[in-house]
Design a protein around this nucleic acid. Structure first.
Lengths: 207, 207
DNA sequence: CCGCACATGTAAGACGTTACATGATTGT
DNA sequence: ACAATCATGTAACGTCTTACATGTGCGG
């Protein structure tokens, strides 16, 4: 198996896999699980991608496939070339983050939605974020219960980011003005509903 | 120009453009600017995409191209079909957000970086986030200076999200432990550097 | 012995980014 | 006259997602 001399194209997803392989060989399946757990919160990785990147990296000589085990399990180990490529990538300036938050699009265009609809969406998402926050909280408690100096401070830092993020989102949701979410009142005075769908829109009309 | 009967595939980016076209016809160029300004902070849109989506939507009858103007400017207007498609998309459950934050990968694998390197990266990114936060702050002040009821509360909500996000990131950075960023001391006692590259790693070794 | 979780992989297409090509108009 | 900006578009490529195809072994 001669590693090709192709220049390894650095791909953050692939490089993360190399990062995990520093701790020992893993199969594609377990790498998916590891990635999901360790970086899933700020870097999505799908199963399809993992197998593809592993195949590519094997071709490039950055990883080496071992013997197939019981259920066709195929462990991959990082090579010396892999370690070098990883270090080069890691030492390069990381790019800026990208966020794609569909709910915010819905909020921005909220004036085109019937009253209450936006509130329902926000509620649904609130539940998701509460779930994630609670997940982080219990992970954090686990890590902090470990003997000091034992827990990985780097993993802790990313975990804290996740927690801060979820907390921020929840606070933001809680601070949304009621007129905006337009939640219909349960009891008492009927809602004023002053906001007709096409109210207060200037008919700006560029040539 | 007969609009095809193809079922319009909903694409959040394209739908956002339709959203903006509710306020009147715009050219591709100005749509890029609008999108950058209005949703650029949580939804990246490139010029290439805009022209492609406009062409596709024209083919589907969701927008209509007007006459070419002075500099080949070609205004697009939303059609009735476009409005319907937009409303359908908007009323559908928005998906969960995706975040891709390369710096966090660098942090997670920070133990493989030489001391000080991570600190430098964080510093660089801090500047970026300060810039963005300040941008949001001045936008916010502008909007709040407008007569009450005049400012779009929906746009205000997304703006507040951006501000909260940037503030959170900056707070998170500020709270990073010094051992982690490993900033070399300027003066006085030599740094202890107790952390050898492979220290305290359990040799977990999956079959 | 049967269903579920494990495990690997392919195929196809949607989505996104970067770079390039081309030219018109405006301002200096 | 010349540069900068406006403006449109294409080409090429890389990345991501969804769905599918196929089969193994473990636990009840």
């Amino acid at each position: 198996v001669s590693p090709t001399t192709e220049k390894a194209t650095v791909n953050a997803t692939a490089m993360s896999l190399l990062g995990f392989l520093h701790d020992g060989p893993q199969t594609g399946w377990s790498l998916v699980a590891t990635a999901q757990r360790e970086i899933g919160d700020f870097w999505s990785v799908t199963q399809s991608q993992v197998y593809r990147e592993l195949a590519t990296m094997a071709r490039l000589g950055l990883v080496e496939a071992g013997e197939r085990g019981p259920r066709d399990r195929r462990p991959y180990a990082i090579t010396e070339a892999g370690r070098e490529t990883f270090r080069e990538w890691l030492a390069a300036e990381p790019g800026v983050e990208t966020i794609r938050f569909p709910l915010l699009l819905t909020v921005l265009f909220g004036r085109y939605l019937p009253a209450g609809r936006l509130a329902a969406f926000v509620e649904g998402h609130r539940a998701i974020h509460i779930g994630r926050r609670d997940g982080y909280l219990s992970s954090l408690r686990e890590l902090e219960a470990a003997p000091p100096g034992k827990a990985d401070p780097y993993a802790l830092a990313t975990l804290r980011f996740g927690l801060s993020y979820e907390t921020m989102v929840l606070d933001w949701m809680a601070a949304l003005p009621v007129e905006l979410t337009g939640k219909p009142r349960r009891r008492g005075a009927a809602q004023s509903r002053g906001r007709s769908p096409s109210s207060s829109r200037s008919s700006r009309r560029p040539a």
